[in-house]
Design a protein around this nucleic acid. Structure first.
Lengths: 220, 220
DNA sequence: ACGCTACGCTTACACTGTAAGTCCGTCAAT
DNA sequence: ATTGACGGACTTACAGTGTAAGCGTAGCGT
């Protein structure tokens, strides 16, 4: 009954392949619904075989998050700091949008992987090269990354992707509003967010510039 | 065998009590590990009974997030806008720290509850009252909330709470660093983050002030 | 030719969310 | 006072989860 038939010389698994398969699956099926069994299936393997390469689910998630950090273009210290920070932020946002599950995972990961550490080091290095003191670097790093992660977090929780859907959804919400309450929310929607051409994604640039322009190496 | 014994006149369930029990459990056991069965148990009830009051797990999570928004002190429109925004941000951070699971949940909720809508309306109203144009209000709302959520997200993912633990953990990481690589990260840790008296929480104030001071009603 | 190790396999367990159906206490209408 | 309906808590059942434990075997260094 059992068919050893074709052992088929399968390409051997390794941590990298396992994590990559998990990422591919998460990208297409969404963060929830990736299970050890499902990941294993895409590799043509049984669930428990994964445990030879990752120590468990948590370890696998750590690996996935670290892989996302590896996709972010690290800032170039030889470039003027403001431009370097802007480009890094754009690259990071792009990576997080490619892998929407990553943001939600970040707050439960407590052990940064090698790519994460390398990335952080590069960011800090670029700020120091731009003339920031150690203390000011810590401040700048904190504001920029907080804004970056928070923006993507909000962006991803919007229930639409293009501005076509926006109209439908917002219209639905507006109709659901208890009529007459929430005047300011209503005003913002009808006179701004619902106008043709509006896209929340464009807000990113405003906040990023606001923060970068407010930061100064030569203070504190 | 079956003991009707004491129907005991149990206080009747309702959506509010169910959601409150879920929140209490999540607060003490952590976001993961709250299951319908566990929630029901704290109410002295079987899992399936909850389904008479919430339509399912997702609905329950929606309710929990909305309840957290209800805890945030809404800004007072009669107060000068910058102060109102600062106080609102502080209150929001406090609420999110009381319920650490909430931030991670936010990015999967797509249907805002009544408290959430009321809160957003109040924030927008306070900015409009402060002289912001509709467009500028949208910008300001986006930056401030992105920073707020992002900061808390990072804060919560730190593997320590007080600055005592910080030393241990950072020491561990530093020892784990491949020796000689990551010079800037190392510098930042030893010359700044590991100094006595440093607490990441204090960074919040810096970024918040930076953003609030950079915002101006009378632009664009 | 030996045994060792690496690694995929099967089995098993405790736990999840929830569909479906049962049963009873309460209350309105008769 | 009797009936009927119904809300809401209950039981049962099922498919799916992560992972502990142990088995089988292919390929290697000796």
């Amino acid at each position: 009954m059992r068919e050893p038939a074709k052992p088929a010389k399968r390409a051997p698994l390794n941590r990298e392949r396992v994590v990559a398969a998990a990422i591919a699956l998460a990208d297409e099926k969404g963060g929830t619904g990736i299970s050890m069994r499902a990941i294993a299936a895409t590799l043509g393997v049984e669930a428990m075989s994964l445990y030879n390469h990752v120590s468990g689910r948590e370890d696998m998630l750590d690996g996935m998050v670290d892989a996302v950090f590896a996709e972010i273009e690290p800032p170039d210290s030889s470039v003027e700091w403001k431009r370097a920070m802007r480009e890094r932020a754009v690259s990071a946002r792009a990576a997080l949008r490619r892998h929407p599950w990553a943001v939600g995972l970040m707050d439960s990961r407590r052990t940064p992987g090698p790519a994460t550490l390398r990335h952080h080091d590069a960011v800090i290095g670029a700020l120091r090269a731009g003339g920031f003191s150690v203390a000011m670097t810590a401040h700048a790093f904190s504001v920029i990354d907080s804004y970056l992660y928070g923006f993507v977090l909000q962006e991803l929780s919007l229930p639409f992707s293009d501005s076509g859907e926006l109209g439908d959804v917002a219209g639905g919400i507006r109709r659901a509003l208890p009529e007459g309450t929430h005047p300011h929310l209503l005003e913002l929607m009808t006179e701004h967010a619902l106008l043709p051409g509006y896209a929340y994604a464009d807000e990113f640039e405003f906040g990023l510039s606001l923060i970068l322009d407010a930061l100064r190496p030569d203070e504190a």
